[in-house]
Amino acid sequence: MKTRLTPPLEPEQAAALARAALTDTLAAVAAARGAARRVVVLDGQPGPWLPPGFEVIPQRGDGLDERLAAAFEDVGAPAFLVGMDTPQVTPSLIEQGLRTVRGGGTAFGTALDGGFWCIGLQPGDHPVFDGVPMSTERTGAVQLARMRARGLTPAILKPLRDVDTYEDAVAVAREAHGSHFAALLAEFALEEEIAV
């Protein structure tokens, strides 16, 4: 996980930081009001990081576009999906997306690197992922264009910076005061004398 954080972090530190980001994201999802279900779409078995009240379904598909489409298809209900790369996400941001999908709409939030941090869809909307190039600086723009081409008018949520590089991690930690992510990054910075 998070290989672009190394260096300056060691691989074990990068993995621990990814786990902290996931923990913070799950905490925000747990605190958000209005979700009928809380689902983690996972490749593998959940660890002790999974809080109570979350259902786990397996990831399926080859590429990220297929896995995203399968997640929405498997949930089978209006759903708002949040990635785990934005530990600064707040319950209120999640609630905005949930309100939109509960009201029959769609939602979308771009990431500052050109991707996206969230997407909310209705049942049957999952083909919007077909052929969208993932993990590029144009992924978010292409995904939004694909949604609009299918006649969807998503509510646009606040853009967030996701964590890909060490510089991203530092910037996100500054936004996510009091988070596990920020505390762990500060600990690593002290251990390694990394400037934060």
Rank of each mutant, 00 (worst) to 15 (best):
K2L: 14
K2S: 14
K2V: 15
R4D: 15
L5I: 06
P7K: 10
P7M: 10
P8E: 11
P11F: 10
A14G: 06
A14I: 00
A16R: 06
L17P: 07
A21P: 01
L22M: 08
L22W: 11
G34N: 06
A35T: 12
A35M: 10
A35Q: 04
R37L: 11
R38K: 14
V40I: 09
V40C: 12
V41L: 02
L42M: 07
L42Q: 07
D43H: 05
G44D: 05
G47L: 05
W49K: 10
L50V: 08
L50I: 09
G53S: 13
E55D: 07
I57P: 00
P58E: 03
G61W: 06
G63V: 01
G63C: 10
L64E: 14
D65L: 04
L68N: 14
A69E: 14
D74Q: 14
G76D: 11
G76C: 05
A77V: 04
M84T: 15
T86Q: 08
T86C: 09
S92H: 12
I94F: 04
E95N: 03
G97S: 05
R99Y: 00
T100G: 10
G103M: 00
G105H: 05
T106V: 03
G109A: 13
A111D: 02
D113N: 06
G114Q: 05
I119E: 06
D125S: 05
D130G: 10
D130I: 05
E137N: 03
Q143R: 04
L144G: 08
A145D: 10
R148K: 09
L152S: 10
L152W: 01
I156K: 12
P159T: 03
P159R: 03
D162Q: 02
D162L: 01
Y166N: 03
Y166I: 00
V170C: 14
A173V: 02
A176W: 06
A176G: 13
H177G: 12
H177W: 13
H177L: 01
G178F: 00
A182V: 07
A183Y: 05
L184Y: 08
F188Q: 11
F188S: 00
E191D: 10
E192F: 03
